[in-house]
């Protein structure tokens, strides 16, 4: 039995690691996403993402995906991490609704939400301009990382930007009307969708529940404002980007609590002069112990925030006025 380290060396080291790259026996097993549609109400299903980081075991299937039925056809909110996932999702939507795809939405430009776009007609995929621009700018880098981390699951996956710039106030599908709400904070452009007929709010990654929020492109202040705005929209049920869909405010509250607690903790460490290595070793508040990936995302967030804080807050010391 090889140790993990030996496997790393044998495979040329680089090919077997990554954001959360863990090598397990069976990583060459046949690749098949076993998508399960969880019915939330008549005509609305959720394919729940795993509350994990992207790994070679889960193939990147970590984000929640929604499928909605309508007179005009099926509506899909986010497309998952790969071509293979997108194709399985398209089949599933066909089985559930018995109708062709009327509309696909991309809530933001992160790869776990939009790398399944390839399985759909490009002009049916809609997103705000900011999402499209973000994907165009970051897609190639994401693609390298995804192939590296998830490996064969990504086979044949290309970055496809949405073909329809979402500008309408209302998207009318006959018996279902969706209101697109352009927000920001988790990224520079976050699409929230409110379904008038069910009262369901599809919050994308502005809301995480029982899984720590991710911050590589976050603007924390904007994000907090977006959460306050979301809280002001009366809704029957909130579908977060990651975590269970519930008919309470737990997702909003928990995400807000994380954003109000964790960045200030990091800022405090920074103000005390701690370097990144020291800040990442700090203890986390007890309440985060029940949140998946709390330590992992905390460490990532330290690495996201520190360089900005250093660049933006330290005084110039090379004898030149700022």
């Amino acid at each position: 039995m090889l140790s993990r380290r030996e496997v790393l060396f044998l495979s040329g080291a680089a090919a077997a690691s990554g954001l959360a790259g863990r090598i397990v026996p069976g990583w060459a097993a046949p690749l098949r996403y076993d998508l399960k549609a969880n019915k939330l109400t008549d005509g609305i299903w959720m394919v729940a993402g795993r509350q994990e980081a992207i790994t070679r075991e889960n193939g990147g299937a970590i984000a929640n995906i929604a499928i909605l039925d309508s007179e005009a056809g099926s509506i899909i909110i986010d497309t998952g991490p790969s071509r293979l996932f997108g194709e399985a999702l398209a089949r599933l939507a066909g089985e559930l609704t018995g109708k062709p795809v009327a509309r696909v939405y991309n809530t933001h430009f992160h790869p776990d939400h939009v790398f399944g776009n390839q399985a759909f007609q490009r002009d049916k995929i809609a997103a705000p301009k900011g999402v499209i621009d973000g994907l165009a700018a970051n897609g190639s880098g994401f693609s390298d990382a995804m192939y590296f981390i998830a490996g064969d699951w990504m086979r044949g996956t290309d970055v496809i930007t949405p073909g329809h710039v979402l500008e309408a106030q209302v998207e009318d599908f006959g018996d279902r009307r969706l209101r697109p709400l352009a927000m920001r904070g988790h990224t520079s452009s976050d699409l929230v969708l409110f379904d008038e007929s069910s009262g369901f709010l599809f919050a994308g990654d502005l809301v995480f529940l029982d899984r720590a929020p991710t911050t590589p492109h976050a603007d924390i202040e904007r994000w907090r404002i977006a959460l306050a705005n979301l809280g002001g929209i009366p809704h029957r049920r909130l579908i977060p980007g990651h975590g269970p869909a519930e008919d309470n405010t737990r997702g909003l509250d928990q995400t807000r609590r994380w954003l109000e607690t964790i960045p200030p903790l990091i800022r405090d460490a920074f103000e005390k002069g701690l370097d990144i290595s020291e800040a990442t070793a700090l203890p986390l508040p007890e309440w985060t112990s029940s949140i998946a990936l709390a330590r992992y995302e905390f460490e990532r967030t330290v690495n996201h925030l520190y360089p900005r804080l250093e660049a933006e807050t330290w005084p110039r010391v090379d004898g030149v006025a700022q």
């Binding site: 954001l19 590589p216 370097d275 990144i276 290595s277 460490e299 690495n303």
Partner: peptide
């Protein structure tokens, strides 16, 4: 770090 997201900026002590 236990996670390396940016290979161009890895904090080492």
């Amino acid at each position: 770090p236990s996670i390396v997201e940016n290979q161009a900026q890895v904090a080492v002590t």
